[in-house]
Amino acid sequence: MTPMEKAITEDELHAYVDGFLNADDRLRVERYLESHPEAAARIAGWQEVSEMLRRGLAHKAKEPLPSSLNVQRLAEARLARTWQPQRVAAGLLLALAIGTGTGWFAHGSGQQTGLTALSQQAAVAQRVFVADSDQPVEFASAGLTQKVGWSNATEARHVTAPDLSEAGYKFIGNRLVATEQGVAPMFIYENAQGGRISIFVRVMEVIDTNAPMRPFDSKDASGFAWSRDGIGFGVISSKPEPKLHELSNQVRDKIEIKA
């Protein structure tokens, strides 16, 4: 055994497996392993163990995150927590809304908030108003610009939905949906095969006011939801539409919000 080999410690063997050695030390360890098959077998086993654990648990790290772990939302909830009067008021409002039964959607959305709630509202509205294409088209075509939110609220704004005809979808009409956040317009589009998608828009309060796009899936419909400057958007299709993500990106880039 050369003096060099004597210097190899068990810690270095670990560091070799974990990739923490510099090039020189790595070479030293490799040379040592060449002449020590027992140690080499042990190291190979350690490497297999790491690989087995990493591969198995990698599936966990790839799962979509639940909305309860949305950092933006947790940060906002934290601000709300430190500001008691508002919190109490919000709680009262919610209790009233549920208590007086004004909120069909309040029941439907359960405890969910933010984009998750928006996604559910959008999916249900899609099912009720849009999905069944046998139903005669009875949408008032009020145009691509619609008011969002409560009329008397200072934050009520107008959105202008984009023209999607280049993507194969013709605008066929509107629906207005009543939500706790005021009026939520839907813009409905149809393609040549009779497939319908809709854009659902409503005011976002406190939570998810600026959230990146994320997919959603419910038993009624699937789509994509996101928000910007306190307005939330959902693009929904009841039937599988491979272009839906692309369409949603187009909508996000082209839709306009005005005071």
């Binding site: 990698a58 966990k60 790290a61 790839k62 995150l65 772990l69 950092v71």
Partner: peptide, 13 residues
């Protein structure tokens, strides 16, 4: 916040 977000999958795992 972005940095925090990046670590969530690993924390979950």
């Amino acid at each position: 916040l972005t940095k925090l977000e990046e670590n969530i999958p690993a924390l979950r795992r």
